Simulated assay, not measured.
Amino acid sequence: MGARRLLPRNVIVLSWVSFFQDAASELLYPVLPLFLTVTLGAPASVVGLVEGVAEGTASVGKAVSGRLADRFRRRPLIAAGYGVSSVAKPLIGLASGWPVVLGARFIDRVGKGLRTSPRDALIAAETPPAMRGRAFGLHRAADTAGAVVGPLLGLALYELLDHRLRPLFFVAAIPAVVSVALIALVREHPPPPGAARPPGVPLRRLPRPYARVVAFLALFGLANFSDALLILRAHALGLGFVGIVTAYALYNAVYAALSYPAGVVSDRLPRRLVFAVGLAAFAVAYLGLGLAGESTWVWPLFAVYGAYTALTDGVGRAWVANLLPPGALGTGLGLYQGVAGACALTAGIWAGLAWGGTGRVPLLVSGAIVTVLAATLALGGRRLER
């Protein structure tokens, strides 16, 4: 707790903002694939399309908002992004066909794209470089704690509401609105009166080590498809709604528990090595889910998958931020997030089309590719940072 007290106030406040917003989002996330395929009768390829377009939309927004974050005040961008996402969630509950869900997810991800890069830039700018692993780790831990509370709340409401899915989309608006209200506690120092607005940083002037690291992470992104398809795999292995939500809550609990320790470790060891261990966990989870023949394997493999996310999400942001000059934090983090999202779009589409009846093929292909990437980063990753 002592280390956490040393972190800036805004890091703490933004962690709570993300907690409530993610509680709202993750209340719905394990429900959405079942809502699409069972309630609305859409095929698995539509799940991949919806989530791919959603992440692709967010990726473009992150790149644009990152450049804005280096020129304008960041708190208004953060507030607008969370506000847009809060409005979009209940729209899904009104859907009578999957195109409406696609439109609502598009709106939701516009909000995510608008807020993510300014928020991450604000966290990085206010935290000393040697503590950024802790700062992003704490933020990801709080964010993911919301992702534990959300699915469990959704499960309880599912039972109370006689197994109806639609009302859950309206309930999710409540914690989302709380998260928007908390942004009022963020304190951002305005520029001095009459100060010139900072010019945008040309992309060609971003450091070469940054470009090499982002290129490597893009390769990984092409193999990292939406978690919604992992939920479909768990369903194909025999888990029902209750089992899926509980397994997803387990994934998020492991993610939340390990995020801050992973950030602390990444402040002491090379972040590329921590990230490489995370990629190894990813490969184990994907290969295991591809090879599994019964539902009991879902539980340990989702836990391993939670470890992967904890070892890469906040660590990756801190890794990238430390490769950037102070005046390019928004631009660089936004471009990184944008590239990752564009790769997620590609991965979601190809995996959804290749899914078939069970999803074994894309899981095994991605797992094999990431095994190679993990070994490459662990053994030769130093060259990326030169």
Rank of each mutant, 00 (worst) to 15 (best):
L289N: 09
A176L: 00
R134D: 12
G154T: 02
P362L: 07
T371R: 06
P207I: 10
G316Y: 12
A135Y: 04
P326S: 09
R382Y: 08
R5T: 09
G306W: 02
P175S: 09
M1Y: 11
P129G: 09
W350R: 12
G332R: 09
I244G: 03
L279P: 04
G290I: 08
P270Q: 05
I92N: 03
V242P: 12
L229F: 11
P33Y: 01
S59H: 13
G359H: 08
F216W: 10
G263N: 05
G154N: 03
A79R: 14
A156M: 14
G314H: 06
V365L: 15
L353V: 12
N322K: 13
G338S: 02
I369Q: 07
F216H: 07
P190H: 10
A328N: 04
R5G: 13
F106M: 14
A310L: 12
F225S: 00
A135W: 06
G238K: 10
A184Q: 13
G66D: 03
R134S: 15
Y251V: 09
G341A: 04
K112M: 05
G113I: 10
R132Y: 08
A375Q: 07
A256Q: 07
G81P: 07
T127W: 15
A95V: 07
V339Q: 02
R187S: 15
L324F: 02
A307Y: 03
V148H: 05
H235K: 14
P118R: 06
T376L: 13
P30H: 15
